[in-house]
């Protein structure tokens, strides 16, 4: 493994860490449940991708690389499904989105009961 790859890996891990922190900050800061799902989405798509890419550049063996790609593919397939299931369950249970000041002033489609 050359130094160049190690630098590239460090850069990917740094970007990934920054995105993870961003997601966590959004998760703490956003006012309602649906906005927090979006913040989770940042950490689950791009941050996971960058961290796993950074790890992938660190290995010189084929087997760990295949497994890292598998993990990435699986996270990318499952996380949207999980967040849709969460949003649907919350919507059906009567949780409605709020705007910044914590009021329920978000306009909803009129066909909704």
């Amino acid at each position: 493994m050359s130094t160049l790859w190690l630098w590239a890996s460090d850069a990917c891990l740094l970007i990934g860490s920054f995105l993870l922190l961003t997601g966590a900050l959004g998760f703490l800061r956003f006012p309602d449940f649906y906005a927090r799902i979006h913040a989770c989405g940042v950490t689950e798509t791009l941050a996971t991708g960058f961290v796993l890419l950074g790890l992938l550049l660190r290995s010189d063996d084929a087997m760990p690389q295949v497994k890292l790609v598998l993990i990435l593919l699986f996270v990318l397939f499952s996380s949207p499904t999980a967040s849709h299931a969460l949003a649907k369950a919350a919507w059906n249970a009567g949780v409605r989105p709020r705007d910044n000041s914590g009021k329920r002033r978000v306009s909803l489609p009129h066909t909704d009961p």
Partner: peptide, 26 residues
């Protein structure tokens, strides 16, 4: 505040555990 926030947090915790295990393995 409600159960869905908790499930969302558990989901986030779980996906980060996957990353943590991968990083620890390296």
């Amino acid at each position: 505040p409600n159960v869905f926030d908790r499930v969302l947090a558990a989901n986030l915790f779980g996906t980060k555990t996957v990353l943590l295990i991968a990083a620890i393995s390296y």
